[in-house]
Design a protein around this nucleic acid. Structure first.
Length: 299
DNA sequence: GACTCGTGGTT
DNA sequence: TAACCAAGAGT
């Protein structure tokens, strides 16, 4: 008599047990896990957008020391946030953190909102961050979907090498179907899947030999097929507006006071491009124009 | 959906 | 070495 095929619910239960045990034994000791204010969690999530944890940690510590609550940040100038952002990348995040902190100060009694909907309405907060903060700061049951979780589920459940370039509805539904019912367990589940993706089920060279899901992994069972989706456009860098904008903001970060347009031209080879980038930075609110062709970080 | 937006480590 | 890629969001 062959044993009956395990039900979907039974397989999910095994998945939960396996991964939660793995996480308990292998989770990194990140400073924003465990004892940390919701504000600390919020900062860590925004700083981690497209940014490796190792680069986030020192900036995160400096921000929390300098601005221990949303109100402290809101009462300072946005430009100081951009300056303290250092070279974390995507400095608009610093600007939006300041805006979000202002909303928290003015509309939420200086607290980080609890509900996913209120979080989602904050500037710089999208579906990932809203779900992550609700789960990791407040222990609410949400469905967190980030690039790690998408990759783990694509492989382990769907047997694909990588997830699609953009989040799909099917991915959201799949992720939601796997979240445990109990809120506290759900929060750990979300971070456990992320952690597996970050440490073991990595994009380039997955360490399948160390994976707790090895014998339940659909991708391994399928012979680890390679990525079959559309080619991903590689990000150009040299000579792009991105590079020039970054150099302009860096010049302003390093300067104690206003900087002339002439000095900012050092940010690129092509003067018209630098001028165009200055304009776009001003439009974005990252740079404040002053009289006589001088510029500074926003006050 | 396709594009844009920084930065630096890894391969 | 150039390409890849890292806890996304906004337009």
């Amino acid at each position: 008599m062959p044993s009956p095929a395990p039900t979907s619910a039974a397989r999910t239960a095994v998945l939960h047990t396996t991964l939660l045990e793995w996480y308990a034994a292998n989770a990194r000791d990140l400073p924003w896990r465990g004892e940390c204010t919701p504000w600390g969690v919020f900062l860590s999530e925004v700083m981690s957008h497209q940014t490796p944890v190792a680069r986030v940690e020192p900036i995160w510590r400096q921000w929390l020391e300098r601005w221990p609550t949303p109100t402290h940040l809101a009462d300072d100038s946005p430009g100081e946030g951009v300056r303290a952002w250092g070279r974390l990348g995507y400095p608009r995040r610093a600007l939006r953190l300041h805006e979000a902190a202002t909303v928290m100060r003015d509309d939420f009694g200086g607290q980080v909102p609890r509900s996913e909907a209120d979080l989602l309405a904050l500037p710089g907060v999208g579906p990932y961050t809203a779900a992550a903060v609700a789960a990791f700061a407040y222990g609410l049951r949400t469905t967190v979907v980030d690039t790690n979780i998408r990759r783990v589920l694509a492989r382990a459940i769907e047997g694909k090498a990588l997830a699609a370039p953009a989040v799909t509805r099917a991915e959201m539904d799949l992720a939601a179907s796997l979240v445990p019912d109990d809120p506290a367990t759900a929060a750990v589940w979300n971070v456990a899947v992320m952690e597996l993706g970050a440490l073991v089920c990595t994009a380039r060279l997955p360490r399948c030999g160390d994976c707790p899901l090895l014998d339940q992994c659909a991708w391994v069972a399928a012979g680890q097929p390679t990525y079959a989706g559309p080619a991903r456009r590689s990000q150009a860098w040299h000579g792009t507006d991105r590079q020039v904008r970054g150099a302009i903001v860096q010049l302003l970060r390093e300067a104690p006071g206003p900087v002339t347009r002439r000095a900012l031209e050092a940010a690129g080879e092509d003067a018209p491009q630098v001028d165009r980038c200055i304009d776009s930075l001003v439009a974005d609110g990252l740079v404040e124009p002053l009289a006589r062709n001088r510029f500074r970080l926003p006050r």
